[in-house]
């Protein structure tokens, strides 16, 4: 039972990895194959979500679908697919977070090729589908808050792509209380900000509120 559902999860990740990529000719040409794979999934809410998405995706006018994708993922910062941005924001730590992911892929025997960034969700999903047992979902769990944020943001726009994020999140299981708190914080404040160098530096006697803040 457990083994079968793990295999199902890998397929969900793999399918989402593909479907979250740009719907170019090559991907659209594989629609039949993708649909077959979705139908072959064991029944689950995730499979249901994928099925619904496929229905929309295959029915779309190709050019309209491309426009839709660009609008959803290339030009909207709230639903971008580069997930370390949500955790690290525009901070110097983001570079290190990217390096860490890249090294992890390599350590697992799945080095990243080409010019794509390691925190691109389709990359993470491909990794989750292919990585050694127990390692793949780790990256997704680590970015659970970001996944939720993108998911909610897509739902806000009634974007059919939200169903893919639903599928990923359903497969991952319930989000932890900490993750949900992070989502709330991200919705409220956006990604974290660099604060280095922004501390007030006037003498303490002219900055009475400084003490209170500490």
């Amino acid at each position: 039972m457990r083994r079968r559902s793990a295999a199902g999860a890998r397929t969900v990740y793999k399918l989402c990895s593909l479907l979250l990529q740009y719907p170019d000719d090559e991907l659209r040409a594989a629609a039949g194959e993708l649909r077959e794979a979705v139908r072959g999934l064991p029944r689950s809410r995730a499979a249901q979500a994928l099925d619904e998405f496929m229905e929309w995706w295959t029915a779309c006018d190709p050019l309209a679908l491309e426009e839709h994708y660009v609008q959803s993922f290339d030009l909207d910062k709230r639903s971008g697919l580069y997930l370390t941005f949500y955790a690290k924001g525009d901070k110097r730590e983001r570079g290190m977070a990217l390096v860490r992911l890249k090294q992890m892929y390599r350590a697992c025997g799945l080095p990243l090729e080409g010019t794509e960034l390691p925190d691109y969700l389709p990359v993470m999903l491909e990794f989750a589908a292919a990585a050694p047992e127990g390692r793949g979902e780790l990256v997704l769990h680590e970015h659970r808050a970001a996944l939720e944020l993108v998911r909610l943001s897509l739902h806000d726009h009634q974007d059919p792509y939200a169903r893919l994020l639903d599928a990923v999140c359903l497969t991952l299981g319930e989000a932890s209380a900490t993750d949900l708190a992070s989502v709330r914080r991200l919705i409220g404040d956006g990604p974290p900000q660099e604060l280095v160098g922004l501390e007030p530096f006037a003498p303490p006697d002219v900055m009475p509120e400084l003490e209170a803040r500490r």
Binding site: A64, G80, R94, G95, L98
Partner: peptide
């Protein structure tokens, strides 16, 4: 200055242009 010191962020910023774009209607 801080403006220059923050530029490395832009390389991988989510809103950076990454692909050539054409307006769909014109392309069609």
């Amino acid at each position: 200055c801080p403006r220059g010191a923050s530029f490395s962020w832009y390389t991988y910023s989510p809103l950076r242009l990454k692909y050539p774009y054409v307006r769909g209607s014109l392309l069609a």
